[in-house]
Design a protein around this nucleic acid. Structure first.
Lengths: 258, 258
DNA sequence: ACCAATTTGTCCGTATGTATG
DNA sequence: TCATACATACGGACAAATTGG
């Protein structure tokens, strides 16, 4: 073995046919020439255009579908689509689970992300989102005592707050963590009776702070809301430094897959 | 037309064979029975086990490859792997571009995420990461006057700070935004001469604050670092409410694809 | 409401290039 | 060097689902 001379060239990556099909279609979408909602055409048409086998076209389409750039609409027709976040988010959540992230990591990140989201909400919430928040609030007030419903509405509440920030970057950044984090409130409400009412109260305060454009108050209550979660989490006998269990995550992810 | 009665049942989704192949393999990985690095077996072997055609197996494998759950190693053998973030992150970045997110959204989110990251770094940075930060710093001090290098090292700096937080959730959450945000410092250093030295100075202060475990100081300098970026961005004549251009993003994404 | 054409999902067999021993 | 195993890609085929008259 031979040359101690540093390699001048990187290994050449020869792209396979299906990758080139995927990239060609992706390029059309990214460049804007193919708009969300536009039909892409039948597999046979793509076979003609690219001059490759249909199996090859299909592999390329799978890649794009998975990446969220293309979807199968009615009649399984191929459409371009604006990338759906949820598919990507749940993939990331799954990745986090596989990395054995701990509840503490989840909590610390959620604290930063949710407080950031509510700051944005105070600054940018419009009447429409506030109405949605109020609707969410009246639903959650009816749901006290029903842990499953409670945690569902709680998850939606935080998504709405993020949406109110009118910051899609932040909205997306928080989603993978939220997908793993908030479903755990079901477990908490089951084990800690005061958990439910406390959560509803906190939501109320947060909504009011957003409406009053009171930044400090909003921050305060969001922070308190999450810190309460952590307290109840430990009160429920869970270890905060334990990894997010795969079984729990499977539950969370399968719900979101719909 | 007809029944005004609300539908009782959802549309039945009949899973196709390739989806079931993908899900079966995914289930093995998520459950932990198939560990990262384990061989999955040849396509022929999967054909035998699942009793489906090779084309079908291949479509299923593409889905998993794209999701980052399996990879092709040496000899194109199939291995399970712990999901690589970077593939997912660049997909999300692309999604953000397609949604025409603005630089302002990017900036607001980065402010929250990077300040959060440095807070974590102050709390959890160990000697190893600090050494890496120092190494990064000596490289960037040599790179003043070279915008391309400067922005590369800057990007790495922020990734290191996030890594120092020992919070993988946060580390992952910030990455899509960072992928779009920090490459723009190249443009800034090109247009605003003072930008480079100011950046290097800020990095120095941030590293020192992390070493001193001074939370307030770290927050202050990270915030200042980013606010300076925004000032320079506008000084360079760019409109902060303009969408991240697709051309610029293409540049950023193609660099990261390696 | 039926029929014909189209399209997808799946399967079979085969050829070629490449990696491993 | 050669042989084997394997991934990639191709052509052709058929049933079921969907579309459009």
């Amino acid at each position: 073995m031979s040359d101690t001379i540093a390699d001048r060239f990187d290994r050449i990556r020869v792209p396979s046919a299906y990758e080139m099909v995927a990239e060609a279609i992706e390029a059309e979408i990214v460049s804007g020439r193919l708009r969300p909602g536009d039909e892409i055409g039948t597999e046979a048409a793509l076979v003609r255009q690219f001059g490759v086998n249909r199996s090859t076209v299909r592999e390329g389409i799978r890649v794009l579908e998975q990446g969220g750039l293309v979807r199968r609409g009615a009649g399984r027709k191929l459409y371009g689509c604006e990338p759906r976040y949820d598919a990507l988010s749940s993939r990331i959540s799954r990745a986090l689970v596989l990395q054995d992230v701990t509840f503490r990591e989840l909590f610390d990140a959620a604290l930063i992300l949710e407080v950031g989201a509510v700051e944005g909400a105070v600054a940018h919430a419009d009447a429409e989102v506030i109405a949605a928040l109020e609707a969410n609030q009246s639903r959650i007030e009816q749901a006290i005592g029903n842990p499953v419903l409670l945690s569902e509405i709680d998850t939606e509440f935080h998504a709405l707050v993020a949406h109110a920030s009118r910051n899609r970057v932040l909205e997306l950044a928080r989603e993978p963590a939220a997908l793993l984090f908030f479903p755990s409130s079901e477990m908490i409400c089951r084990r800690v009776p005061e958990g439910g009412p406390r959560m509803v109260e906190a939501h109320r305060r947060i909504i009011d702070a957003i409406k009053a454009r009171d930044l400090e108050l909003a921050r305060l209550w969001m922070r308190r809301h999450l810190v309460d979660w952590r307290k109840d989490f430990m009160r429920a006998g869970r270890e905060i430094d334990a990894p997010v269990e795969r079984i729990f995550a499977r539950y969370a992810l399968s719900r979101s897959a719909l």
